[in-house]
C-alpha cells in the first residue's frame, strides 16, 4: 500500500472529526440539548474513513441509524449535521429528520436510515442507476452485523450480483445487533462467508485498522467501477457505547470491552503516525485542537439557529402538494 503522508493525515483528521463530533453529541444528549435517539459511531471510525477515502464526491453511500460517521467521512458539513441533531431549521433536513435521517444529495449521501437493512436495497438501486447511465459512479453500502439477518441483505446482494452492479457492501461487524451478540444472533463467525452464496468476493478485515479497510475497499471499488460486480467486505470492529445513548450496555462483558478499547482505531493510527515520523506529537495535538474548534463552531451554529417554522411541518411531503396545517 502506497499512501501519501498527506492522505494518512487526512484520514486521521476524518477519524478524529467523527470521534469528537460523537463525543460532543454524547455530552449534549446527556445535557438534554439533543432530543430523540442518538446512536454513536465511537470505536468504528476506521471503517467509514477507510472506505470513503476511495470514493469521489459524486459516488453514493447508504448509511444506517448509526450514521454520523459515514456522513462526516463522505464530507458532510458538521454545522448542518449538528443543527439537525438539535432539530433546527438550518439542519440538513430542516429539523424534520434528526440523527437517523441525515442525507446530502450533493455529496451522494442517500441517507442514514432508521430501518435496519433498508439501505441495502436502496444501494442496489443507486448502483443500477450508475450502471444504467454509465456514469462510473459506485455506491458504498454501510450496514451492521445485525442487518445481515434481514431479508433485504439476501435480496440485495443477490440482485447486485446477478446484475453485476457497482455496489460495495460494507458490513460493520461491531459484534452486537442491539443487545444480542453476533455469536448468539447468527451461527457463523465471518459474515463475509455469506458472499459465497452470491458468487461474489467476500473478505474479512480488521475494522480497527484504517489501512486494512482502505485496501479492501480499494480493491472492491476498482472491481465495481470496472463493472465486475459487488464485493462484500466485513470489517470487524467494536461499538464502544451502548446501542443508543442511555443504553447501559450491561450485556457487554467487561473483559471484552477492555480488550477492544486497547485496540482503539484512532490511538492505533496516532501511534503509526508518530512512530513513522509523519507528524510529531505536537503536530497531532494541534490537529486535535483544530478539530475541537470545528466541533465547537458547529455547536455554536446549531445553538444559534432558529427552530423550524410551524408551517414547515406540512411542507416537503410532496413536490407539489402542501397539506393542511391546522389541527382543528
Amino acid at each position: 500500500m502506497n499512501l501519501e503522508n498527506s492522505r494518512i493525515i487526512d484520514m486521521y483528521k476524518t477519524m478524529l472529526r467523527i470521534r469528537k463530533f460523537e463525543e460532543k453529541a454524547m455530552n449534549l444528549f446527556a445535557e438534554g440539548k439533543i432530543p430523540g435517539f442518538v446512536h454513536l459511531y465511537i470505536g468504528e471510525e476506521a471503517v467509514a474513513t477507510g472506505v470513503t477515502a476511495n470514493l469521489n464526491t459524486n459516488d453514493y453511500i447508504t448509511s444506517t441509524h448509526r450514521g454520523h460517521g459515514h456522513i462526516i467521512a463522505k464530507g458532510g458539513d458538521l454545522k448542518y449535521m449538528m443543527a439537525e441533531l438539535f432539530g433546527k431549521a438550518t439542519g440538513y433536513c430542516k429539523g424534520k429528520g434528526g440523527s437517523m435521517h441525515i442525507a446530502d444529495a450533493t455529496r451522494g449521501i442517500l441517507g442514514a436510515n432508521g430501518i435496519v437493512g433498508a439501505g441495502q436495497n436502496i444501494a442496489v438501486g443507486a448502483g443500477l442507476s450508475a450502471k444504467y447511465k454509465g456514469t462510473g459512479q459506485v455506491c458504498a453500502c454501510f450496514f451492521g452485523d445485525g442487518s445481515t439477518n434481514q431479508g433485504t441483505f439476501h435480496e440485495s446482494l443477490n440482485l447486485a450480483s446477478i446484475w453485476k452492479l457497482p455496489v460495495v457492501f460494507i458490513c460493520e461487524n461491531n459484534m452486537y445487533g442491539i443487545s444480542m451478540s453476533q455469536s448468539r444472533h447468527q451461527a457463523i463467525q465471518d459474515i463475509s462467508d455469506r458472499a459465497v452464496a452470491y458468487n461474489i468476493p467476500g473478505v474479512t478485515v480488521d475494522g480497527n485498522d484504517v489501512f486494512a479497510v482502505y485496501e479492501a475497499a480499494n480493491e472492491a471499488v476498482k472491481r465495481a467501477r470496472a463493472m465486475q460486480g459487488p464485493t462484500l467486505i466485513e470489517c470487524k470492529t467494536y461499538r464502544h457505547r451502548g446501542h443508543f445513548e442511555g443504553d447501559p450496555a450491561i450485556y457487554k462483558p467487561e473483559e471484552e470491552q477492555k480488550e477492544w478499547l486497547a485496540k482503539d482505531p484512532i490511538k492505533r493510527l496516532e501511534s503509526f503516525i508518530v512512530e513513522n515520523k509523519i507528524q510529531t506529537v505536537d503536530e497531532i495535538n494541534e490537529i486535535n485542537e483544530e478539530i475541537k474548534r470545528e466541533i465547537l463552531d458547529a455547536v455554536e451554529f446549531a445553538e444559534n439557529s432558529p427552530e423550524p417554522a410551524i408551517d414547515s411541518v406540512v411542507e416537503d411531503i410532496y413536490t407539489d402538494i402542501v397539506e393542511e396545517v391546522n389541527l382543528v
Binding site: 436495497n121 438501486g125 447511465k133 435480496e155 440485495s156 440482485l159
Partner: peptide, 23 residues
C-alpha cells in the same frame, strides 16, 4: 426481469429514483 424479491424490487426502484431514474 427481477428475481422473486419484492423488497428488492421496490427498494431498488427507490434507490434508482433517488439517483435520477424514473422506475
Amino acid at each position: 426481469d427481477t428475481p422473486i424479491s419484492e423488497s428488492a424490487i421496490v427498494g431498488c426502484a427507490v434507490g434508482a429514483a433517488a439517483t435520477g431514474l424514473r422506475p
